[in-house]
Design a protein around this nucleic acid. Structure first.
Length: 318
DNA sequence: CCGATTTGACCCTG
DNA sequence: CAGGGTCAAATCGG
Protein backbone atom coordinates (compact mmCIF):
# COMPACT_ATOMS: atom_id res chain seq x y z
CA UNK A 1 0.00 0.00 0.00
CA UNK A 2 2.83 2.30 0.85
CA UNK A 3 4.27 1.59 -2.52
CA UNK A 4 1.00 2.40 -4.20
CA UNK A 5 0.77 5.69 -2.40
CA UNK A 6 4.25 6.49 -3.55
CA UNK A 7 3.30 5.68 -7.10
CA UNK A 8 0.27 7.90 -6.98
CA UNK A 9 2.22 10.70 -5.44
CA UNK A 10 4.91 10.28 -8.03
CA UNK A 11 2.31 10.42 -10.74
CA UNK A 12 0.96 13.60 -9.25
CA UNK A 13 4.42 15.00 -9.13
CA UNK A 14 4.96 14.20 -12.77
CA UNK A 15 1.68 15.78 -13.65
CA UNK A 16 2.67 18.82 -11.68
CA UNK A 17 5.93 19.10 -13.52
CA UNK A 18 4.15 18.66 -16.78
CA UNK A 19 1.78 21.41 -15.86
CA UNK A 20 4.60 23.73 -15.04
CA UNK A 21 6.38 23.04 -18.27
CA UNK A 22 3.26 23.16 -20.37
CA UNK A 23 4.08 26.56 -21.85
CA UNK A 24 7.38 25.20 -23.11
CA UNK A 25 5.75 22.07 -24.39
CA UNK A 26 3.29 23.96 -26.47
CA UNK A 27 5.36 23.54 -29.56
CA UNK A 28 6.46 20.02 -28.80
CA UNK A 29 3.47 17.74 -28.98
CA UNK A 30 5.64 14.68 -29.03
CA UNK A 31 7.35 15.71 -25.84
CA UNK A 32 4.02 16.40 -24.28
CA UNK A 33 2.75 13.09 -25.46
CA UNK A 34 5.63 11.18 -23.95
CA UNK A 35 5.21 13.00 -20.69
CA UNK A 36 1.57 12.05 -20.64
CA UNK A 37 2.55 8.50 -21.40
CA UNK A 38 4.82 8.43 -18.44
CA UNK A 39 2.15 9.80 -16.15
CA UNK A 40 -0.35 7.34 -17.48
CA UNK A 41 2.10 4.54 -16.97
CA UNK A 42 2.70 5.49 -13.36
CA UNK A 43 -0.98 5.77 -12.55
CA UNK A 44 -1.59 2.59 -14.41
CA UNK A 45 0.90 0.78 -12.23
CA UNK A 46 -0.71 2.26 -9.18
CA UNK A 47 -4.07 1.16 -10.39
CA UNK A 48 -2.89 -2.35 -10.99
CA UNK A 49 -1.63 -2.47 -7.46
CA UNK A 50 -4.87 -1.06 -6.20
CA UNK A 51 -6.72 -3.75 -8.03
CA UNK A 52 -4.66 -6.34 -6.25
CA UNK A 53 -5.17 -4.63 -2.93
CA UNK A 54 -8.82 -4.26 -3.47
CA UNK A 55 -9.43 -7.82 -4.42
CA UNK A 56 -7.58 -8.80 -1.33
CA UNK A 57 -9.59 -6.64 0.97
CA UNK A 58 -12.84 -6.66 -0.90
CA UNK A 59 -14.52 -8.58 1.83
CA UNK A 60 -13.72 -6.10 4.52
CA UNK A 61 -13.70 -2.53 3.47
CA UNK A 62 -12.38 -2.62 -0.02
CA UNK A 63 -13.86 0.78 -0.54
CA UNK A 64 -11.18 2.30 1.58
CA UNK A 65 -8.88 2.58 -1.35
CA UNK A 66 -11.38 4.38 -3.49
CA UNK A 67 -12.38 6.53 -0.61
CA UNK A 68 -8.81 7.50 -0.21
CA UNK A 69 -8.54 8.26 -3.87
CA UNK A 70 -11.63 10.36 -3.80
CA UNK A 71 -10.79 12.41 -0.84
CA UNK A 72 -7.94 13.32 1.38
CA UNK A 73 -4.50 13.39 -0.08
CA UNK A 74 -5.21 12.11 -3.52
CA UNK A 75 -8.13 14.38 -4.11
CA UNK A 76 -6.34 17.46 -2.94
CA UNK A 77 -3.36 16.52 -5.00
CA UNK A 78 -5.46 15.92 -8.01
CA UNK A 79 -7.24 19.14 -7.41
CA UNK A 80 -3.90 20.79 -7.42
CA UNK A 81 -3.05 19.17 -10.69
CA UNK A 82 -6.27 19.84 -12.40
CA UNK A 83 -7.08 23.23 -11.09
CA UNK A 84 -4.02 25.04 -12.20
CA UNK A 85 -4.58 28.72 -12.78
CA UNK A 86 -8.02 28.34 -11.40
CA UNK A 87 -9.28 26.45 -14.38
CA UNK A 88 -10.82 23.44 -12.83
CA UNK A 89 -14.07 24.38 -14.37
CA UNK A 90 -15.69 21.39 -15.88
CA UNK A 91 -12.36 19.76 -15.76
CA UNK A 92 -11.96 16.14 -16.41
CA UNK A 93 -10.01 13.57 -14.57
CA UNK A 94 -9.18 10.47 -16.45
CA UNK A 95 -6.93 7.72 -15.39
CA UNK A 96 -6.05 5.15 -17.87
CA UNK A 97 -3.51 2.67 -18.93
CA UNK A 98 -4.26 3.17 -22.55
CA UNK A 99 -1.18 2.97 -24.67
CA UNK A 100 -0.38 6.58 -24.77
CA UNK A 101 -3.80 7.70 -25.72
CA UNK A 102 -6.03 9.45 -23.35
CA UNK A 103 -8.69 6.93 -22.73
CA UNK A 104 -11.34 6.33 -20.20
CA UNK A 105 -10.25 4.10 -17.43
CA UNK A 106 -11.78 0.78 -16.82
CA UNK A 107 -12.36 0.31 -13.15
CA UNK A 108 -14.99 -2.33 -13.36
CA UNK A 109 -12.53 -5.08 -13.67
CA UNK A 110 -11.10 -4.38 -10.31
CA UNK A 111 -13.30 -7.06 -8.93
CA UNK A 112 -15.28 -4.57 -6.96
CA UNK A 113 -17.96 -2.35 -8.27
CA UNK A 114 -18.50 0.87 -6.51
CA UNK A 115 -16.89 1.42 -3.21
CA UNK A 116 -18.12 -0.73 -0.41
CA UNK A 117 -20.21 -2.82 -2.76
CA UNK A 118 -19.54 -6.39 -3.47
CA UNK A 119 -18.39 -7.30 -6.91
CA UNK A 120 -21.10 -7.65 -9.41
CA UNK A 121 -21.01 -8.86 -12.92
CA UNK A 122 -23.89 -9.32 -15.22
CA UNK A 123 -23.75 -11.98 -17.83
CA UNK A 124 -24.02 -9.54 -20.64
CA UNK A 125 -21.87 -7.02 -18.98
CA UNK A 126 -20.37 -4.80 -21.59
CA UNK A 127 -17.08 -3.05 -21.38
CA UNK A 128 -17.12 -0.34 -18.83
CA UNK A 129 -15.21 2.86 -18.75
CA UNK A 130 -15.38 5.15 -15.83
CA UNK A 131 -14.54 8.79 -15.91
CA UNK A 132 -14.47 11.38 -13.22
CA UNK A 133 -16.01 14.56 -14.49
CA UNK A 134 -15.84 17.65 -12.42
CA UNK A 135 -18.63 20.11 -12.66
CA UNK A 136 -17.72 22.88 -10.29
CA UNK A 137 -18.83 26.45 -10.51
CA UNK A 138 -21.82 25.49 -12.49
CA UNK A 139 -25.11 27.11 -11.98
CA UNK A 140 -26.83 23.83 -11.84
CA UNK A 141 -24.59 21.10 -10.58
CA UNK A 142 -27.48 18.69 -10.68
CA UNK A 143 -27.04 18.38 -14.38
CA UNK A 144 -24.59 15.74 -15.39
CA UNK A 145 -22.06 17.04 -17.83
CA UNK A 146 -22.79 16.81 -21.47
CA UNK A 147 -20.43 14.50 -23.26
CA UNK A 148 -21.56 15.13 -26.77
CA UNK A 149 -24.02 12.31 -27.04
CA UNK A 150 -27.70 12.43 -26.55
CA UNK A 151 -28.79 10.40 -23.59
CA UNK A 152 -32.17 9.40 -22.36
CA UNK A 153 -32.62 8.79 -18.70
CA UNK A 154 -34.33 5.54 -17.97
CA UNK A 155 -33.84 5.17 -14.28
CA UNK A 156 -32.56 6.53 -11.07
CA UNK A 157 -31.77 4.68 -7.95
CA UNK A 158 -30.59 5.30 -4.47
CA UNK A 159 -27.35 3.47 -4.00
CA UNK A 160 -26.37 2.08 -0.69
CA UNK A 161 -23.64 4.11 0.86
CA UNK A 162 -24.07 6.97 -1.56
CA UNK A 163 -25.60 10.24 -0.65
CA UNK A 164 -26.69 10.84 -4.18
CA UNK A 165 -28.83 8.70 -6.41
CA UNK A 166 -27.35 7.11 -9.47
CA UNK A 167 -28.81 8.05 -12.77
CA UNK A 168 -29.16 5.55 -15.57
CA UNK A 169 -28.98 6.75 -19.13
CA UNK A 170 -29.10 5.07 -22.48
CA UNK A 171 -28.43 6.39 -25.91
CA UNK A 172 -31.38 8.25 -27.29
CA UNK A 173 -30.98 6.35 -30.52
CA UNK A 174 -31.00 2.97 -28.92
CA UNK A 175 -34.13 1.99 -30.71
CA UNK A 176 -33.44 3.64 -33.99
CA UNK A 177 -29.92 2.38 -34.37
CA UNK A 178 -29.78 -0.33 -31.79
CA UNK A 179 -27.13 1.63 -30.07
CA UNK A 180 -26.18 -0.24 -26.90
CA UNK A 181 -24.40 2.64 -25.26
CA UNK A 182 -25.39 3.37 -21.71
CA UNK A 183 -24.02 5.41 -18.95
CA UNK A 184 -24.44 5.78 -15.25
CA UNK A 185 -23.94 9.08 -13.57
CA UNK A 186 -23.23 9.28 -9.91
CA UNK A 187 -22.08 12.13 -7.80
CA UNK A 188 -19.33 11.37 -5.38
CA UNK A 189 -20.15 11.33 -1.72
CA UNK A 190 -17.37 13.57 -0.63
CA UNK A 191 -17.30 15.75 -3.69
CA UNK A 192 -20.73 16.53 -5.04
CA UNK A 193 -19.17 18.61 -7.76
CA UNK A 194 -17.63 15.53 -9.25
CA UNK A 195 -19.57 13.05 -11.28
CA UNK A 196 -18.47 9.53 -11.74
CA UNK A 197 -19.66 8.66 -15.19
CA UNK A 198 -19.59 5.03 -16.15
CA UNK A 199 -20.00 4.25 -19.81
CA UNK A 200 -21.13 0.84 -20.87
CA UNK A 201 -21.13 -0.29 -24.42
CA UNK A 202 -20.05 1.67 -27.41
CA UNK A 203 -22.08 3.96 -29.52
CA UNK A 204 -23.02 2.33 -32.76
CA UNK A 205 -25.42 5.04 -33.76
CA UNK A 206 -22.65 7.16 -35.21
CA UNK A 207 -21.53 4.25 -37.35
CA UNK A 208 -24.71 4.33 -39.26
CA UNK A 209 -24.62 6.46 -42.33
CA UNK A 210 -27.92 7.83 -41.28
CA UNK A 211 -27.12 8.15 -37.68
CA UNK A 212 -27.51 11.51 -36.13
CA UNK A 213 -24.62 11.42 -33.75
CA UNK A 214 -21.31 12.98 -34.32
CA UNK A 215 -18.19 10.95 -33.94
CA UNK A 216 -17.63 10.09 -30.33
CA UNK A 217 -14.61 12.16 -29.71
CA UNK A 218 -16.08 13.47 -26.57
CA UNK A 219 -17.08 10.27 -24.96
CA UNK A 220 -14.00 8.50 -26.08
CA UNK A 221 -11.57 11.16 -25.26
CA UNK A 222 -12.86 13.84 -23.04
CA UNK A 223 -16.25 15.06 -22.04
CA UNK A 224 -14.54 18.28 -21.19
CA UNK A 225 -14.23 19.03 -24.85
CA UNK A 226 -17.59 17.80 -25.82
CA UNK A 227 -19.03 21.04 -26.80
CA UNK A 228 -20.46 20.14 -30.09
CA UNK A 229 -23.87 18.96 -29.13
CA UNK A 230 -26.33 20.30 -26.70
CA UNK A 231 -28.02 17.40 -25.09
CA UNK A 232 -31.34 17.50 -26.74
CA UNK A 233 -30.56 19.09 -30.03
CA UNK A 234 -29.24 16.65 -32.50
CA UNK A 235 -29.21 15.74 -36.16
CA UNK A 236 -25.89 16.95 -37.25
CA UNK A 237 -25.24 16.06 -40.85
CA UNK A 238 -25.17 12.33 -41.20
CA UNK A 239 -21.96 10.97 -42.44
CA UNK A 240 -20.42 7.67 -43.34
CA UNK A 241 -17.52 7.65 -41.02
CA UNK A 242 -16.58 4.06 -40.76
CA UNK A 243 -13.19 4.90 -42.13
CA UNK A 244 -12.78 7.99 -40.07
CA UNK A 245 -13.89 6.41 -36.88
CA UNK A 246 -10.48 4.99 -36.31
CA UNK A 247 -9.07 8.40 -36.73
CA UNK A 248 -11.43 9.79 -34.18
CA UNK A 249 -10.79 7.03 -31.77
CA UNK A 250 -7.07 7.11 -32.05
CA UNK A 251 -6.73 10.79 -32.29
CA UNK A 252 -4.49 12.33 -29.74
CA UNK A 253 -5.61 15.38 -27.99
CA UNK A 254 -3.68 17.64 -30.22
CA UNK A 255 -3.81 21.14 -31.45
CA UNK A 256 -7.24 21.82 -32.73
CA UNK A 257 -5.96 23.13 -36.01
CA UNK A 258 -8.50 22.31 -38.61
CA UNK A 259 -10.40 20.31 -36.12
CA UNK A 260 -13.36 22.53 -35.96
CA UNK A 261 -14.50 21.07 -39.20
CA UNK A 262 -13.14 17.60 -38.78
CA UNK A 263 -15.71 14.91 -38.98
CA UNK A 264 -18.21 17.35 -40.27
CA UNK A 265 -19.52 17.56 -36.80
CA UNK A 266 -21.63 20.35 -35.57
CA UNK A 267 -20.04 23.70 -35.72
CA UNK A 268 -17.49 24.23 -33.07
CA UNK A 269 -15.84 27.32 -31.91
CA UNK A 270 -12.13 27.14 -32.24
CA UNK A 271 -10.14 28.44 -29.38
CA UNK A 272 -6.46 28.97 -29.40
CA UNK A 273 -3.97 27.49 -31.73
CA UNK A 274 -2.26 25.08 -29.51
CA UNK A 275 -3.24 22.36 -27.17
CA UNK A 276 -2.18 24.26 -24.14
CA UNK A 277 -4.87 26.79 -24.02
CA UNK A 278 -7.57 25.16 -25.99
CA UNK A 279 -8.88 23.10 -23.18
CA UNK A 280 -9.39 25.78 -20.69
CA UNK A 281 -11.66 27.96 -22.73
CA UNK A 282 -13.30 24.88 -24.00
CA UNK A 283 -14.15 23.66 -20.57
CA UNK A 284 -15.74 26.97 -19.91
CA UNK A 285 -17.45 26.59 -23.17
CA UNK A 286 -18.71 23.22 -22.14
CA UNK A 287 -20.04 24.73 -18.98
CA UNK A 288 -21.82 27.29 -20.99
CA UNK A 289 -23.40 24.57 -22.99
CA UNK A 290 -24.40 22.69 -19.90
CA UNK A 291 -25.84 25.73 -18.37
CA UNK A 292 -27.70 26.64 -21.45
CA UNK A 293 -29.53 23.37 -21.31
CA UNK A 294 -30.72 22.19 -24.63
CA UNK A 295 -31.08 25.50 -26.25
CA UNK A 296 -28.20 26.43 -28.41
CA UNK A 297 -29.52 29.83 -29.32
CA UNK A 298 -28.05 31.59 -26.39
CA UNK A 299 -24.93 29.53 -26.13
CA UNK A 300 -22.77 32.06 -27.77
CA UNK A 301 -24.01 34.75 -25.50
CA UNK A 302 -23.33 32.55 -22.56
CA UNK A 303 -19.96 31.63 -23.83
CA UNK A 304 -18.81 35.13 -24.31
CA UNK A 305 -20.43 36.63 -21.33
CA UNK A 306 -18.74 36.94 -17.97
CA UNK A 307 -18.84 33.85 -15.87
CA UNK A 308 -21.19 35.35 -13.37
CA UNK A 309 -23.74 35.94 -16.03
CA UNK A 310 -23.32 32.42 -17.23
CA UNK A 311 -24.09 31.12 -13.81
CA UNK A 312 -27.08 33.30 -13.55
CA UNK A 313 -28.24 31.99 -16.84
CA UNK A 314 -27.46 28.54 -15.66
CA UNK A 315 -29.89 28.89 -12.85
CA UNK A 316 -32.68 29.36 -15.26
CA UNK A 317 -34.20 26.42 -16.87
CA UNK A 318 -34.26 26.69 -20.60
C1' DC B 1 -49.02 14.81 -29.77
C1' DC B 2 -44.65 13.16 -29.02
C1' DG B 3 -40.49 12.57 -26.67
C1' DA B 4 -38.18 13.01 -22.18
C1' DT B 5 -38.28 12.35 -17.26
C1' DT B 6 -39.85 10.38 -12.94
C1' DT B 7 -40.56 6.69 -10.03
C1' DG B 8 -42.24 2.40 -8.08
C1' DA B 9 -42.10 -2.34 -9.26
C1' DC B 10 -39.82 -6.02 -10.94
C1' DC B 11 -35.77 -8.79 -12.49
C1' DC B 12 -31.25 -10.66 -12.03
C1' DT B 13 -27.06 -11.78 -9.79
C1' DG B 14 -24.04 -12.91 -6.04
C1' DC C 1 -32.16 -12.10 0.51
C1' DA C 2 -29.94 -7.69 -0.58
C1' DG C 3 -29.00 -4.53 -3.76
C1' DG C 4 -27.90 -2.95 -8.49
C1' DG C 5 -30.05 -2.55 -12.98
C1' DT C 6 -34.09 -2.14 -15.97
C1' DC C 7 -38.90 -1.70 -17.22
C1' DA C 8 -42.89 0.75 -17.99
C1' DA C 9 -46.85 3.57 -16.57
C1' DA C 10 -47.63 8.15 -15.23
C1' DT C 11 -46.40 12.66 -15.75
C1' DC C 12 -44.32 16.67 -17.72
C1' DG C 13 -43.19 19.98 -21.15
C1' DG C 14 -42.36 21.91 -25.72
Amino acid sequence: MEETNSLVLYGCKLARELELSLPNMANHPSLLSSSCDEIIRVFSMARNQLNVHESQVAEHGGGVVQDWLRSTQAMSLLHTQFSGAGHAVGGLMQFSDGGGEVQPVDVADSGGGSSSQRPRRRKDDMDRRTEMVRAPRMGNTEIPPDDGFTWRKYGQKEILGSRFPRGYYRCTHQKQYHCPAKKQVQRLNNDPTTFQVTYRGDHTCHLSSTAPSAPPISAQLSPAISIQQPTTTHSPPPQPISSTLGHWLSMDIQPMAGDSSAGAGPSRVRFGRDHVDYQLPVTDLADAMFNSGSSSNNSIDLIFSPMEEKWDAGEKKN
